[in-house]
Nucleic acid binder design. Structure first.
Lengths: 251, 251
DNA sequence: GAGTGGTCTAGACCACGAG
DNA sequence: TCGTGGTCTAGACCACTCA
């Protein structure tokens, strides 16, 4: 019995659309026909057709935008996060057409931030929410936290002060000379519904999540960051010098 | 407008089942009620209920077995890969009940191994395929490659020589004093069908993949490894000492 | 308001596993 | 054979985008 390869309808449709995309018949930025039309064309019901599109979305080939349509993604520009504090500088140089929007806010430490920053609950924090864009599509997401209140707002205004990404770079660079080590914890997980929305990715597209703590020579954490990198467009590099014999015994 | 959190039916059901699992109301190995019964209990249609189960499967909480039912996975023992060459020693100590099976083979370099090991096609390699088990379930997977032929088989026998995991550790440790750096490239991706089979995981469970190259002081790669860690049961830590000013200028 | 995707329904039929 | 999960249908209704 050659039941070995029972190709489901959604697989067959996904295969067809995938070859149209990879052969260039459908180019990056193109809008697909509406799901209703596609369903009629392939003679399947809409849920089945949506199953096919979900596969393509999980592969990062298409982008679904509610109310507008399904769009072929531009060929993915792979970005490399570099560990050890050399993080965004190199990649920003390598791909200058990426731009970053920053939202600044102040909040008080709670939840997982307590362990990440090693502070007690209620400690004031500056949060920098940085979203990288490639063209009009969101690419990746970083939240940077710095303990201690930033410059207070002029009056009772709710608007936090505005910072550019350059400001943050400068501020982080200023912290560097005194630091003793950078700890980076890397996990692979599915995106949260929130991340699905802001990054417009599939709920089944793996996320490379990095939580980074920068420790100064007094043992305090001067900065922490939560980096969210969709797995289809980013990876991370770490280069480590070997420990000496002495370090290995003590470590 | 409080449209911010419209919880879908499948999310609500997944949340309910998830808390039942994490609180221990449903234990590892338990079989869930049939999808038809669950759908009746939650008063939803079967496709909706299956959507909820798909979420739990992607999180690694349940395992679907066609024709038998849906089963709660045994609680996951989280393991930490430590970068920079201190890789398996610490974690093995921390969880001694994990055991590792090693399959040794010889092959000739080709494909992606060429760039990983920086050798030319056809170079003989030793491959150590290490599978970690926790009890009877496979946990994670490492392939270690060392350029150069190992001890040749006694005669024409196809069986490669057998090594224990300790042998490999010893061999890697012997390489360490002369090495200059370890490069680790970390990605998040979906598992290959092969990995789905050998690790018995969901096709939508994110994988943390690490490819590691160990470079000696002559610039040659003495060892490389491909580490496959299911995202629900492992993460990776990297600790970096900061570069000096001199290093930063040169780097 | 017109058109789009997002979610859901209440069934149907097929494929697999075990007795 | 029976109960299970896997796939699919032909609609319905809601939410979002844009003119």
């Amino acid at each position: 019995m050659a039941t070995a390869t029972v190709i489901s309808r959604r697989q067959a449709i996904a295969d067809d659309l995938r070859t149209q995309i990879t052969t260039g018949e459908l180019k990056g930025g193109d809008r697909l026909p509406s799901e209703t039309n596609l369903a009629a064309h392939y003679q399947v019901s809409t849920p089945t057709l949506r199953g096919a599109l979900a596969l393509l979305q999980a592969e990062g080939l298409i982008e679904k935008i509610h109310g507008k349509g399904n769009f072929v993604r531009h060929p993915l520009r792979r970005l490399t996060y570099i560990g050890g504090g050399r993080t965004w500088l190199d990649s920003a140089r390598a791909t200058p057409q990426l731009h970053i929007t920053v939202h600044t806010s102040q909040l008080r430490a709670q939840g997982h931030l307590l362990t990440l920053l090693q502070v007690s609950a209620g400690t004031p924090l500056m949060q920098f929410l940085c979203i990288r864009h490639e063209g009009k599509s969101p690419h990746s997401l970083v939240r940077i936290y710095i303990p201690g209140a930033g410059p207070p707002p002029a009056d009772g205004s709710c608007d936090p002060p505005r910072y550019s990404h350059g400001d943050i770079e400068a501020r982080l660079a200023a912290l560097r000379p005194a630091l003793t080590e950078i700890r980076e914890r890397v996990t692979a997980r599915l995106p949260t519904p929130q991340e699905v929305a802001t990054l417009r990715i599939s709920p089944t597209l793996p996320i490379l999540a990095i939580s980074r703590s920068t420790v100064d020579d007094t043992g305090h954490i001067t900065e922490a960051a939560l980096v969210v990198l969709p797995g289809d467009r980013a990876d991370a590099h770490f280069i480590t010098r070997p420990m000496t014999e002495k370090e290995r015994r003590e470590g």
